[in-house]
Amino acid sequence: MNNALYNTHVKLLAFDFLSLSPNATDHPSSFSRKGRLLSRAETLGFVVTRELKPGKFLRFTIDDGTGCIPCVLWLNHLSSSYFSKRSPSGVRSIAQVAMKFASEIQLGVVARVRGRITGYRGMVQMTVSDVVLESDPNSQVLHWLDCVSLRFCGCIVGTCSFLLNLAQLFYLMSSCAMHVIVNVD
């Protein structure tokens, strides 16, 4: 199985993310998508659910318009034995960053989330390592286009008309960028 994207944060649409299947044979805690091993992903969308267990974790859901990705952000760094052998100052820093992410994740915000792809109770989810709030309303559109174009880079054959549409859209995007530059000037 192709592992070129293993450990890379791959931009995935939710419907694609939710179709990932566990692959324990090639790599522990890896998932496969059309013959490619994946372990990390990036998503962008509305936060539509939020459940906080203080000192333990924050569970939330990202809706990108094609599906809902369950996410978990761990907040137990100061009490977990997993971190007991690491430097206390380093663990405190990690805990502070996680707390900051947790405070930023509120219902209705649009967030770009990166993390490990994990399984929980038969569901694929994201164990969060990074959160960035998006204020640009076009960021979701650009994320969709990134996901679509990257799938083509992943050697998935599409129809000619589809590729033509994609090319037209990138032309539109460049026109839009030029428009912004002209306005700024």
Binding site: P137, N138, L145
Partner: peptide, 28 residues
Amino acid sequence: RVGRNVDGLDINLYRHSLQLLREFQTEQ
């Protein structure tokens, strides 16, 4: 359930991208 102000959204790009996204999803 949730909502957001999206002033500054390029509506033309949004509509075209939505169409493309649907085609892509159906194809996949």
